[in-house]
Design a protein around this nucleic acid. Structure first.
Lengths: 121, 121, 121, 121
DNA sequence: GTGGTCTAGACCACA
DNA sequence: GTGGTCTAGACCACA
């Protein structure tokens, strides 16, 4: 997990973003145990309270479940994970399309450009 | 021209980006006159020196030509404009692909996702 | 380093010229550290910003490399240094030949004159 | 005659330089009549007094002679003209050699460089 | 009016 | 300490 934080947006929002990405990308597998708040806070170099806040938001999204005494676990509801993944992807896609249109690209040329770019790799 | 600046990256870099976008998107037409440094600086809410710096960089890219006492003009080299447009687009695409892969998308699924997203509009 | 500046040409251009000369002549050795902007600015009696601008241009020529927080270093690409030295020499030669021709000298007489002048020393 | 003047050195010195060059280069032929002060002053865009001063210095060098009622004439002493020409050339050469040495050139390499440069034309 | 230059001085990140 | 950025404001040449 790369904990690259900037000073622009609230830290807890950035942590949430990173944790969500970790889960939807499969880095933290469905049903698996997540490291403790203290541990992750130390890793990311933030105050445990801030990391705790990000976890609270993760929990509200039902991406993690807390089981007293044993710790926190990634949800095993893979459908939910998929939905959130698609939601995040939609955000990324929207930004991408917006930027391409600013550069004067049409829908068709965007698609062609992506196709060409992916084949090229 | 929307002059949305953040405090993250140097302002002159952001101004350069916006001006480049304005040119490659055709908002500033090839061969046309560009508003004066003072005018644009006031519009963007920055110091004229900072805007001037962005212009210096634009000029090094040969996207504009300066005529003392009359002002600055967008290059009429449309081929060059096209090249730079493609270059910027490549940057945008790379960021997009990188973010999508972080979310666990494969090349194929990225393409499908883009396709679906564009048709949906 | 003699910092003789006139009021004829932009100071930053003159500084660039002097720094380039310092590098191609070997006064600043390949790979060696260059004094800080503030130091050189004080030495030359100019504003640090102006010296910084000259450095920016030096860097664009790739004659120096900047390492944040440690300082700037002369490139160790001796081939490049040689190329730029020859380039500057060509400029000096052209001016010389132009002036001699204005005085009515032919190519042959210029060569003879240089030869005589150099032997004389 | 190109009357390019800068604001750095005294105007009359620059005028003298230009007139001397005109004579030693043969543009103003030995023994020929020179245009009037008024005329030349107008051409160069300077005050006639300033041009007059330059002429006074030219006269002191005996490069021109004034004949009352008929006007001013370039000297017909071609030997003198030659001496002054060489004197000016020496100045030009000295500056050239100084600049080349600053660039790290030795006497031998200067000569070779001049030779190569002249042949190349 | 236009662009170009320069200074003085503040403030930032990084190590 | 290092380099990098930005502002405010003055002044210049040119047409």
């Amino acid at each position: 997990m790369g904990w690259k934080l900037d000073s622009d947006r609230p830290i807890h929002v950035q942590l949430l973003e990173l944790l969500k990405t970790g889960i939807v990308s499969g880095e933290y597998e469905p049903g698996s145990k997540i490291p403790s708040v203290r541990e992750l806070a130390a890793e990311a170099g933030v105050n445990p309270n801030t990391m705790q806040r990000a976890f609270g938001e993760l929990e509200r999204l039902e991406l993690i479940k807390t089981e007293r005494t044993t710790g926190r676990f990634v949800t095993d509801d893979e459908k939910l994970i998929g939905l959130i993944r698609d939601d995040m992807a939609k955000g990324v896609l929207n930004d991408f399309v917006r930027d391409m249109k600013r550069l004067g690209f049409s829908n068709e040329s965007i698609l062609a450009f992506v196709k060409a770019g992916l084949e090229e790799e």
